[in-house]
Simulated scan of single mutants.
Amino acid sequence: MVPLHPVALGLVIIALVVDGRGWDLLPDPLGWLLVLVGTRALPATLRHRSALLTSAALALVVSAVVWPPAVAEQVSATDDSVAWALSLPQLAYLALLADAARYAARQAGVPGRAAWFAVVGILAVAAAVLPVLVLGAGVDSLAGTAVLAATLSLLLLAVLALVSARAPWLGGHPRPLPGLPREGSGDGHSDGPSGPAGGPDRHSRPKSGESS
């Protein structure tokens, strides 16, 4: 399994909403379950791996609790700080995965991809911090910016996870080029002990006692 494939699919499910008489027909708990499965398959050496698993599990629990329409309505009717607190596990996961992927890309010598992951991390952190200014300092003009940052970080990370899924530095497996045999497969064209394609060795010397 390519670890980032279920992660990307899960993030897309989380981002989309298909309304069915108040119920989201693309339930966020399903999305977070896929994210958790993919995260568990990421390399053990990946930065923040334990924190990623914890934040994904917390986000799964939160999404399952608020998925029923009645609960979602109650959350919307309460203070905005409750909705912000419930969003923190998701934002933490986005920021942590973005930072882990940024570091892995930089170590692998892919600075362009590392820069894009850094943008996701900045957006996720901004989405987590700006509501503090909105709720605590009354800077209401930043509310829309916080929502935009949260949405962009989720969508951009889903795209980056998909296009980076086969990168070896994120546990992926590059596709073999068409027409080339896989490593270890027998194609009948390997050099044998007697020379190329099993033919006689042109540089072999006659045995002793044989006439030249």
Results as ranks from 00 to 15, higher is better:
V139Y: 03
L26S: 04
G171Q: 03
I122V: 15
L46M: 15
L58Q: 06
E183M: 14
Q107T: 10
A85F: 08
P3I: 04
R49Q: 01
A85M: 13
G198C: 14
L60W: 11
D80M: 15
V75H: 09
L97W: 00
D99M: 10
L130A: 08
L170T: 14
W116P: 00
V134L: 02
G109L: 04
L33N: 02
Y93A: 03
K207H: 14
S63T: 12
Y93V: 01
S50I: 08
G171S: 01
G144R: 09
A128Y: 07
A15C: 08
L123S: 03
A70M: 12
L155S: 03
G192W: 02
G144Q: 10
R21L: 09
V75M: 12
S194Y: 05
Y93Q: 01
A158S: 01
E73C: 07
A57H: 05
V66L: 03
V35F: 02
S164F: 03
P176N: 03
Q74F: 06
L9C: 06
S194G: 00
L16Y: 02
A197R: 10
A150P: 11
L135T: 06
A150Q: 09
W67N: 06
L52T: 00
A115N: 08
R202V: 14
L34E: 03
A59E: 03
L25T: 07
A158P: 00
Y103Q: 08
V119S: 11
D140Q: 12
T45E: 07
T145M: 13
D187E: 08
L16C: 13
A77F: 10
A118M: 15
A158M: 01
A167M: 12
A126N: 02
L170Q: 04
L133Y: 12
A51I: 02
A92H: 02
V134W: 02
R113E: 05
V62P: 10
V163E: 01
R166V: 06
Q107R: 02
G112A: 07
G112F: 06
T39P: 05
A56M: 12
A104Y: 10
L142D: 07
R175V: 12
G172L: 07
D28N: 09
S208Y: 13
L9Y: 01
V125W: 11
G172Y: 10
V62N: 07
H203V: 05
P29I: 14
A127D: 01
